[in-house]
Design a protein around this nucleic acid. Structure first.
Lengths: 340, 340
DNA sequence: CTGAAAGCGCTAACAA
DNA sequence: TTGTTAGCGCTTTCAG
């Protein structure tokens, strides 16, 4: 037994392209072509190869393909959190568009933590994705540098980031705050207040809200800060705090629908008339906002659409279509319903 | 200029391990060791390498690592849908546990479609994940074969699959239906009905529900079928259908909290007394179920816990700990609240 | 239209 | 503790 070149690296044992080639009686390259550029191969050859693929249950090793080729066909998605959140819609939109194009989604959650974001992004970049989507601005400069150095198409979402790394698909969070403020003013509310998290988007909504109030000659009451991500419980707690303080508050703008609905439900429990005693507005226009009794006034934002547009942008960028960095502002729209 | 071995494959242009090695004055393997098994390298060497890594902003190519080594450090997660769904919690739980261990999550959605599931699983398996989590049983035998042939740890969740591929972390959907049925019987409801989707888990809940009713000498009214994934709108529509038919229905078991809440809100809109005129129960015990007014009777299922346990199981299996296939039944618990 | 050769960037065995 | 060597499974030139 001649010990021909002892194998060092560990083989996987799974069928390889070479096995398919042998069975089909063609060379390995031909198999590769059938799989990647079928039109470049004669029909009979193609069929023989496909048959062989089927027979041995060959599943191409995309890791090897990614290493050898230029593209990994992986898109990374970085969101603050996925559970009970509006970002799930964005991931869905992104994924729906991309799966059909042969891309796979790498998902990561930062939990609004800068350190976690950094290690997450490092790990994802290590997979050499063809593009990356993230929500908002990086939580730290280090992450920003990492992203910029990656030299791949990047799309930031959910806000019109000031100094974008590359593309942006979002809306003005300040404008969202403004339209609610203007609505409150028009409705005659005078003691209004913002409730939201400490994250950048929430702060931007608050800033826009406060600025519009001042422009109308009003002084916003101090904001109520809640943890991110917002939950129904946080919305309820915020309402309790406002009520317990016993101030003159007559309208509340919550940074997200979830918070607003948590508060609205607490009002129902306590028998507080909405909007009679207290007006409530949210942001997101989730299904539940429309279905609530009474239906919630909110700012319409389509997380799904953000995801889809981000996907389209990334696809174009990967293909080398379009010129420079795009900045897509999806705009905001106030949906006036019964809680204000 | 001697044209030494013209490069064929396309280099990425990003710094490689070799670049770090040169700068640190060590060999390539040493860099690899510093990154993977730092304890196997002398402290001064390690520091020199780390410094070099920092200087040139080296991000290890995990694709190359996966190809050369045995592990990809990728875990695939296959769920029906992620937006507005209980599965988002499971993905979160899985991801929370796994990220800390250096794994990255590949996410895919089947949309309850067998064909899409098949191509999705093929694509994911092509990335050679170290393990895979999926919700329930494969939608087709073809997917099942693909999964079994992958020879990696697999965990099926959200149901105690009859013939599992490998591990299972779930609960008995039939038992969930049963506890609700028994509760309805005990409460004295006599004209009860199931509302749910056409997916396997929903059907199992219905079967358990119907069986328990028959065991109590009752005949369940025909079930109302809604599309999967369930939405608030579907719940509302189902309620409308039941009401329009004008039958004697006095209690409704919805396959998910979302459906139940959609119906509950419609009851509020129509001024239908719950549970006076109609009792409503859901499944999932999402935050909203507890916060609703009145709070919803439901079956507690922790999607987060399912994800966490699945992650733990997979981690053990990858490490070679534990013996055969595990079957973890998290059980079901009826949470009696005010809607029944 | 098909094939041969040359890597992609890294890890694993082996030796020093 | 560190270095050398031989691949992992595929795509990409370049020839034919």
């Amino acid at each position: 037994m001649k010990p021909k070149t002892r194998t060092r690296a560990v083989p996987t044992g799974r069928p390889r392209m070479e096995d398919v080639a042998r069975l089909a009686g063609v060379s390995l390259v031909t198999v590769s072509r059938v799989l990647n550029t079928p039109d470049a191969v004669a029909a009979p050859t193609r069929q023989a190869v496909m048959e062989a693929v089927r027979r041995i249950g060959y599943v191409p090793n995309l890791t090897a393909g990614a290493l050898a080729g230029s593209r990994s066909r992986i898109i990374a998605a970085v969101v603050p959190t996925i559970a009970n959140s509006i970002f799930a819609d964005t991931v869905q939109g992104l994924s729906d568009r991309l799966e059909g194009e042969g891309y796979t989604i790498l998902l990561g959650q930062t939990g609004y933590d800068a350190g976690r974001e950094r290690s997450l992004v490092t790990a994802m970049l290590g997979r050499r994705p063809d593009a990356l989507m993230l929500v908002g601005a990086p939580l730290s400069a280090a992450t920003g540098r990492l992203l910029a150095a990656a030299k791949i198409p990047i799309v930031q979402t959910w806000e019109m980031v000031r100094r974008p790394i590359d593309h942006v698909v979002g809306f003005s969070n300040a404008a969202a705050g403004r339209v609610v403020a203007e609505h409150f003013v028009a409705r005659g509310y005078r003691h209004v207040r913002f409730v939201g998290g400490a994250d950048a988007r929430s702060k931007a909504r608050q800033a826009g809200f406060d600025a519009a109030l001042r422009a109308a000659g009003m002084t916003p009451l101090p904001a109520v800060t809640v943890p991110s991500p917002g939950t129904l419980g946080h919305g309820r707690d915020a309402l309790c705090r406002v009520l317990d303080e016993g101030g003159p508050t007559d309208a509340l703008f919550f940074s997200t629908d979830v918070l607003a609905i948590g508060a609205l439900l607490e009002c129902q429990r306590r028998g507080i008339a909405v909007p009679g005693r207290l007006a409530i507005a949210g942001l997101g226009d989730q299904d539940l906002a429309r279905e609530m009794v009474p239906p919630l006034t909110t700012v319409r934002i389509s997380g799904l659409e953000i995801g889809r547009r981000a996907a389209d942008l990334l696809l174009d960028a990967i293909a080398g279509r379009r010129g420079g960095a795009q900045r897509i502002d999806l705009g905001v729209q106030l949906i006036e319903r019964a809680t204000t």
